[in-house]
Design a protein around this nucleic acid. Structure first.
Lengths: 244, 244
DNA sequence: AGGTTAACGATAATCGATTTTTTTGATTTA
DNA sequence: TAAATCAAAAAAATCGATTATCGTTAACCT
């Protein structure tokens, strides 16, 4: 990665959406630990969208003081998973079809523009990273076909890495940051479609076309395919008719 | 505005970058008040980029408890003005040329894509809002020529409103949110070019062309002009050669 | 009955003190 | 000299208790 540090040691928004539960995420403080646990519970839907986050409850549940809970929640406001209203507490960010569409449109804007730039100005390092990420994704594709339950999480990581390396050449820390936020929210919607079965539509084929157009340095084509790829994954979720 | 509430009452990121000091910003809690004051000091450079934010100092300076300061700082992590590192405190977000470029690239991606959509699908409401915002901007242009010092802040607001109404038809809450974050950071860079004199290059003419192409429903042209407009405003700041 | 106020329980906000952790600077050791 | 050690000093993290605010219900008045 040619990126600057992007403050791996900074706390706040989560840059590694997919591997939420990865083991090496050792928390160095109670605040961080509570923040992390809350994030998982929100993304997984244990704490349901829109519901209130009562300090007292959480304080008891996590066996920490109120202040610690409040600070963890305040930090979670960063990635928009938690909303805060003055004098009336914290809430899990609500979900809605409108929100999902906004999420997607914004992702399209950022990711498609970035891939255009990357394809144009990506060097050999970008190219080899991309190739590596793609072949890892294919391998993961096969594995996940064989036994979906065990491999799904790893497939998601491979998928995310592929998307990241597509835009790896040109995007800024800010773009990364925002895409990370969008991703963690999108993951929340994906988990709503409970069944972790692999999508019926041929994601695999879509990836292949995107990959090839990137290598062929066809920026416009690549961007277009990527847009369709992203947008079509919405319609899958949309079928579940989220209310509001 | 056709937007959903976008939680005006939510605290966290600041959606009204320009009118930081506007009077009706009554804070309903100490946390909010401290957060607000800190935000102003950071954007204005009173607290310099990269510097440490010591709890003890701030606690004394604002005459509140440490916990209150910590929570205010944690909330400021949302809009990236404050960085937090576990067990070693809070910092003012650093500034660098690279950061400025990333900020700009990301803004271009979001704003240009949004304007494309808006120009395509904007209805009469969008159009009349745009016309209103533009004419207000012209009026502000004139006023600010006459006496720059007094009117500058108001011009910035008019300018921001013009940009917002350009993309008003189609963009999502997420896009708004991100653009607000980018804007407040860009404002920090603008203030670095101390002199609040109006830009030499003809911003006025650029705005006019953008406005006209929007009304003419020439999405591509409008997007292109907007891109150039945004990018050229960077080079102004760039001259000041921020180090690091 | 309709609306206003009063009181109370629940919850958020805030503080001051205490405990950990990091940083610093002097001293020792290889 | 450079690295390692260790003991304050500084700062962050955390807690438990207190205070302020909100929402709801009950009493009250015309």
């Amino acid at each position: 990665m040619n990126q600057s540090a992007l403050g791996k040691e900074l706390i706040g928004i989560d840059l590694f959406a997919a591997d939420l539960a990865s083991p090496e995420r050792k928390s160095r403080s109670l605040i961080e630990s509570v923040m992390h646990r809350l994030r998982i519970e929100i993304v997984q839907g244990v704490l349901s969208a829109g519901s209130r986050l009562l300090i007292d409850d959480l304080q008891r549940r996590f066996d920490v003081s109120g202040g610690t809970v409040r600070e963890a929640l305040s930090l979670l406001v960063s990635d928009g998973l938690v909303h805060a209203k003055t004098q009336r507490g914290f809430f899990v960010a609500p979900m809605s079809l409108q929100d999902l569409e906004g999420l997607t449109r914004t992702r399209v804007a950022l990711e498609c523009e970035s891939v255009r730039e990357s394809v144009k100005c990506g060097g050999s390092e970008w190219e080899s990273n991309l190739v590596a990420a793609y072949s890892e994704l294919i391998r993961s594709d096969e594995r996940v076909m064989r036994n979906p339950d065990d491999e799904f999480d790893r497939w998601e990581i491979a998928n995310r890495n592929f998307h990241r390396s597509l835009i790896g050449a040109c995007s800024s820390d800010w773009t990364y940051r925002f895409l990370a936020v969008l991703n963690i929210h999108l993951e929340r919607y994906r988990r709503l479609t409970s069944t972790r079965t692999l999508p019926e539509r041929n994601v695999h084929a879509e990836h292949e076309l995107i990959f090839q157009s990137a290598l062929a340095r066809d920026a416009e084509q690549c961007s277009l395919l990527l847009r369709q790829h992203i947008e079509s994954s919405v319609s899958v979720v949309r079928q579940f008719a989220l209310l509001r």
